[in-house]
């Protein structure tokens, strides 16, 4: 049985399931990307555009007959616009069992501050 891994530039793309939530001064993006290896992940940040492209490994079996085919044969692609409150230099990415977690830190200057009232 011969297998071939296909992932390329001209492949179809689709967005993956994505959760975005705020947690303790951080914005967390969690994307479900089954079949993605760390090497095929491309995360770019260009001014206010955050681009995520993930190549999905699909095994192509020789002389195989698909009886059921429900898994989409496409790469994952996401584009997000981020505003100035996000610290561009503090973005962490983690890939674990098909789940990509991006942690975007909010700039210190944008966080809510407590102003002490001094009574005279």
């Amino acid at each position: 049985m011969e297998t071939k891994q296909i992932t390329g530039q001209d492949r179809r793309v689709c967005p993956s399931c994505c959760d975005i939530y705020e947690d303790d001064g951080k914005i967390i993006l969690k994307m479900e990307m089954p079949g993605v290896e760390k090497e095929n992940l491309d995360i770019q940040i260009d001014d206010s555009l955050l681009k995520i492209h993930a190549g999905k490994n699909t095994l192509e079996y020789k002389d195989a007959k698909y009886l059921v085919r429900e898994i989409r044969d496409a790469d994952y692609h996401h584009e997000f616009t981020i505003d100035d409150t996000i610290d561009r230099n503090k973005i962490d990415a983690k890939l674990n069992q098909g789940i990509l977690t991006l942690t975007l830190h909010i700039k210190e200057s944008e966080k809510p501050r407590k102003i002490n009232v001094v009574a005279k």
Binding site: M1, E32, M33, P34, G35, L59, Y61, K62, D63, A64, K65, Y66, L67, V68, R69, E70, I71, R72, N96, Q97, G98, I99
Partner: peptide, 22 residues
């Protein structure tokens, strides 16, 4: 869940996407 069922000459291969599971 989305599954693929593939039949080859010697095997039947079932793949299933389960992100984030152990």
């Amino acid at each position: 869940l989305p599954v693929d069922v593939i039949e080859t000459a010697n095997d039947i291969i079932v793949t299933c996407e389960l992100p984030g599971l152990t």
